[in-house]
Design a protein around this nucleic acid. Structure first.
Lengths: 365, 365
DNA sequence: ATGAAAGCGCTAACAA
DNA sequence: TTGTTAGCGCTTTCAT
């Protein structure tokens, strides 16, 4: 009863060509005339054909359902929560998650996507690397082979479903939280170059400054990274430089690309004898569970990570199981600032201030 | 020139049976006589045959090399480092890592291993779940199909390569560190039931007590878990109970299954107004990078996670690429205690003590 | 309990 | 540029 999965022969018949020609189209051979390629592609769409790599009776029957998940950092609790969300719905629907990380490298991403589709995953959830010079052929190959995928981060040039948060707006609100507290020397610790989210968040910082009477100068954006060590290094560098005589110019508030960077920064501040939030206010991003476990709990922009994973998986599975080739869907969820102990009013009024004047006395530098 | 990969036909010929019979053996069909099964299995070993699921020319040529990695928790930085180590060597050798987590559930582990081998991974690195009642058929299937795998945690009943640390010894030393500082009321926050490592570490605690003059009672072992929230909950429960009048009986030192649990415990202590290390000393396990980033840095048992991943991957790839079927290898690496700020002498001498007596004066409760 | 033969969906050689 | 033909390695009837 159950309609059989179409095979390459069905496509060939429908397009009025041979199996070999269809195969050539699938493998992006340049020996195919544009007209015939189009005919084949149309037939693929029409039948919703999905090629398989399997041989024998395998191809027709045995199929364990699997969803590939492409992330960018194994050591980021952000992804752990997104994956947990995706897993909960995948599991309920009989899919298993296969996770691969590009670690921010474009070449690794390319290889990973190729591998996953070579392994016949039924669909893909991906956080793509931002790389101006990189080609997008691996995503186009997914399209060609009709493998559904959902992105968790926009990538220019690929029409695809996406689940995300409005990062520029959220980042703007993070900065405005500091403005509202009276901070005037505010800085942003930006993420890695490979992150579109980082660019969006930088943009948000820019907009917050634009809406204020504060000047957006070059030193507002400090390139940090995505990891604990990045925030630590950048924090040490910045605040050591702005120590001693230059202390009056030091920022009193910092928004960070993510919570890990913020935690790294907090360590640097601690080691330099600056208190959080008395001397410097710090706001993270993502609202990782760890925020609540720190001695001074971290104010952070809450991102509904688990829900993002769930929504992405639901959307993807719907597309996988749909009879029609899927139309791209876009879902934007809300982020909300969670204020905890790491933010407060700036040390003195605003201008030049002797360190440790108004705030509770510091124990020891 | 390059010796072709043996096929099912080669095995059939070598064993003097038909392809169908070999197929039956591979799929664990019970219609095969023991004698013939043995002959087939021997032929498989002899030729070092590895079945493939792929069809067409794929099977002979196109092969992206992949290593499956089975972990137990996505949200544990321990695995992030092990994976990073494995990835570094896998990458250099042209292998891509596919990570799947069982999240501690046996059924998920079974499914994951089946999936991975269905996807034709070249080998597997696995941290198996501890489950007395569970069958090990998925690992035997790997054996039957000659898929190399290395474990990162012992599992009774499976002869396999392993890379690990001597957990009972390491755990014993963690406890003895507290004993050496003068602690007499010491407790261990144990890990989840699915963890063999947890059992080993509990065993280590037991041995430390045995070598001391302290009595090992039932309350020495507190079942916590593997996550931040587990340590927090268990910590709140234990120290709330031992508050007020019972405070004199409260433990002054705690060793934990891992760093996450320790961090959770520290939060509980903070919220209950107990200072670390002045009132309670806490020691973690794994020595995750985060330890250095806490306001009171965490004393922890350092496990060479990255090296474990590297060694496991090296061993596995050697077995994958070997002409001979591999003999199981066992590697045990050294753990070493890293003393940081979270441990110190107990509040008073040892018996009933008023809090905050001998330790350096606290700024404010 | 086993083998012969047919077939799976795909790719690759080679003609046309 | 395309179709024909010949596989690939494996699984699965169905006799025996």
């Amino acid at each position: 009863m159950t309609a059989k999965r179409p095979t390459i022969s069905d496509v060939a018949a429908s397009a009025g060509v041979s199996k070999a020609t269809v195969s050539a189209v699938l493998n992006d051979s340049d020996t195919v005339k544009d007209a015939t390629r189009d005919r084949v592609l149309t037939a693929i769409e029409l039948l919703n054909y999905r090629p398989t790599q399997l041989g024998g009776r395998n191809a027709a029957t045995r199929r364990d359902r699997a969803i590939g998940v492409l992330i960018k950092e194994y050591d980021n609790p952000y992804y752990a929560e997104v994956i947990a969300g995706a897993r909960s719905v995948a599991d309920a629907r009989g899919y298993t998650l296969l996770v691969v990380s590009s670690e921010g490298e474009y070449a690794a991403e390319h290889k990973a996507v190729a591998l996953l589709r070579g392994k016949d995953v039924d669909g893909l959830i991906a956080t793509p690397v931002l790389d101006e010079h990189a080609d997008l052929s691996h995503f186009f190959e997914l399209k060609r082979r009709n493998v559904p995928f959902v992105l968790l981060e926009e990538v220019r040039g690929v029409r695809a479903s996406i689940v995300d948060v409005d990062n520029v707006e959220a980042s703007r609100r993070a900065v405005e939280h500091l403005f509202a507290l009276g901070h005037t020397r505010v800085v942003h610790f930006a993420g890695p170059a490979y992150s579109a989210h980082s660019e969006e968040r930088v943009d948000g910082v820019h907009r917050a400054f634009s809406s204020s009477h504060l000047a957006f100068t070059d030193d507002v954006i400090v390139r940090a990274g995505a990891h604990l060590a990045d925030g630590y290094r950048a924090g040490l560098a910045l605040f050591r430089r702005k120590g001693g005589a230059a202390a009056a110019e030091a920022p009193t508030g910092v928004t960070c690309y993510n919570d890990l960077v913020a935690i790294g920064l907090c360590r640097a501040l601690r080691e330099l004898g600056r208190r959080v939030p008395e001397d410097v206010s710090v706001v993270g991003y993502d609202d990782v569970p760890l925020c609540d476990y720190l001695a001074v709990p971290l104010t952070s922009m809450h991102v509904p990570k688990s829900e993002m994973g769930e929504r992405a998986a639901e959307m993807l599975i719907r597309q996988i199981e749909s009879k029609q080739p899927p139309a791209p869907e876009k879902v934007y969820l809300d982020a909300a600032l969670v204020v905890r102990g790491s933010t407060g009013p700036p040390p003195a009024a605003s201008g030049a201030a002797a360190p440790g004047a108004a705030a509770p006395a510091a124990p020891k530098p």
